[in-house]
Design a protein around this nucleic acid. Structure first.
Lengths: 346, 346
DNA sequence: CTGAAAGCGCTTACAG
DNA sequence: CTGAAAGCGCTTACAG
């Protein structure tokens, strides 16, 4: 392999000092147009590639952003990551990624690595408490942005997250607009800020029409199909009449659908269902099956990248940015009826 | 923020030379156990973090691997990436990622960046011809591994890919084992090596029982639901009897299902269907809907990472490694019947 | 505008 | 086993 061509090669070939060559190639410093031109041409001719490592070393800036993604590096974090990487790439910033599906100990090691590599910023994706608290503890020497985390208040860093309140509002207004008046909310643990925000949004929509939530409060469980089944059964057993369900995610929605179908109810004729996540997007060979809220995680990622870039540039982005989702209307709220004679393919 | 503690701080605090301190912390060079101990303790006490940038600069090794993932950075590449990143992280190697959803020009820029950052190796995920040819053209100065690319022969680099031939064999044997004798193959363009390999595998399975492929050859189209519909209609129109379909991917399978159902055929009673991809895994609330081949892309990723690590270590990994997939059996081949009275949720 | 020089923090022959 | 010194490739005050 050919010997690497270095800045000093370019300088001597162009007949200038290495300092001048550096100035010609860089942006800083006064330099005559003629000299710059000559150096540039020489660099081109020699196919000079500045050594990024040396440059980073001397400037202390690595043009690199670190990313820690929680173990859900799979389904939920991925769109966020992709959105962020795309945006960062556009700005010539590389993304240094570690798997954060890790013990606290490994996590700490990764954070130290990231610090040692002098990343210009840190993007933390996902809601792992370990991640947030560790990062705090380490007082990371570069701007940090948290993505896909519901703001908890205790955190002073910049947070970009889906707007749960808006999602609840969208779901509520959609159902009410369709004439539904008795809406129940089956969701995950009340401990989650995202859960609370969506519930609050729904309550606001109901309040706009002076409607109560069926049962007076959400039913809290887990994000799972089985909880959806159980919750719907509890709802049926309560004897309370209802004509719509807002589910905390699509899994819960599908579980609820199953339980209601078994009980002989028709969807959406008897009960309309709205999910959250839009995980099951392309599921029906003949139209969208489940009405859901698309959280636009890709946008969450790109907005997070922008916030991080701004922080790195010394600006002060807003502490919290909530990305509104989008209602995706499917047959579970507007029909035709699901189940029965319908042939539904995944 | 506290001034950064450097190796020379540690050295003077421990009362040794900076060279000795370096040896104590590193692995190379003779050093007395007692001195090493003292330096180590001092480093610990001062919370010394070696500057990774400086270290990389002087050694020329960055402990970083570059990743270029094609625009399908979404669905198909992602499991591969995750598998690779996990494995690399275990070895303390960070992953430098660029979005390769890019013009040839941008791609080239990314490759130059990666080279300038002196990555220790390069992992290329996806089947973009641009990627492979560009990487060749650049004669990248570090080991390269291609993942999720069907080996084309012309490429001398290391390739890790799903074993398409094995997939065809699995599908064929499964269907034949269920008593099916008249199998058709609806798939994508014959130009794709992956397509060819799966077809060859199916033909081998058929040959084991001296069975012909229905129509004598696969029907070639695109990876899409709509092609699945069209292809199945062509198959029906041909008048050839058939009792099973092997689809080039799950989308084609779903399209075929739709067309056959419309024609009044029952699945799997009249026609069994096997897909490929296992993209629709969790689709049925009551069992797996579609029999498919899981390509185990996560394993493709981790094996690719291992091959890259081996190359970096100077070993010579095998030029091609094919990862066998797994048959996932669902109701589209073993029943009970899909469609009709069944309630199928996404 | 240009050049000589110092320095970024570490590693590694080379002498002692 | 340990230390003084050179050097990795670049940037940036500091003088001219």
């Amino acid at each position: 392999m050919a010997k690497k061509v270095t800045l000093s090669d370019v300088a001597s070939a162009a007949g200038v000092s290495i300092a001048t060559a550096s100035r010609a190639l860089g942006s800083a410093g006064r330099i005559s147009a003629e000299t710059r031109q000559r150096v540039l041409a020489t660099a081109e001719r020699l196919d000079f590639q500045p050594d990024a490592l040396a440059k980073s070393f001397v400037t202390g800036k690595s043009a690199t952003v670190g990313v820690l993604a929680e173990q859900a590096i799979g389904l939920y974090s991925m769109p966020v990551l992709i959105g962020a990487i795309e945006r960062l790439s556009e700005h010539g910033i590389a993304t240094l990624m570690y798997d954060a599906r890790a013990t606290s100990h490994e996590l700490l090691a990764h954070l130290r690595q990231l610090r040692a590599r002098r990343v210009d910023g840190l993007l933390i994706v996902g809601d792992t408490p370990d991640l947030t608290s560790l990062a705090d503890a380490l007082d990371f020497p570069a701007p940090m942005v948290f993505a896909d985390v519901e703001p908890s208040g205790r955190n002073s860093s910049v947070v970009i997250a889906p707007d749960g309140h808006h999602a609840g509002l969208l779901a509520g207004r959609h159902l009410i607009g369709l004439g539904r008046r008795r809406i129940a909310h089956l969701t995950a643990s009340a401990a989650g800020p995202a859960v609370q925000r969506r519930a609050a949004g729904m309550l606001e929509a109901l309040a706009e029409h002076e409607l109560p939530l069926v049962l007076g409060a959400p039913l809290h469980g887990t994000y799972s199909r089985s909880w959806g089944v159980v919750a719907a059964e509890q709802l049926l057993a309560s004897g309370e009449p209802f004509d719509a369900i807002f589910a905390g995610d699509d899994e819960i929605a599908i579980g609820a659908y199953t339980a209601l179908s078994r009980a002989g109810l028709r969807i959406p004729d008897d009960v309309a269902i709205v999910g959250y996540d839009n995980q099951h997007r392309p599921v029906h060979h003949d139209g969208i099956w489940l009405t859901s809220i698309e959280p636009r995680l890709h946008t969450v990622g790109s907005r997070a990248a922008e916030a991080l870039l701004a922080s790195i540039a010394g600006e002060q982005p807003p502490a919290v940015e909530l990305v509104p989702g989008e209602l995706v209307v499917g047959r579970s709220t507007i029909g035709p009826t699901l189940g029965a004679y319908e042939q539904i393919a995944p």
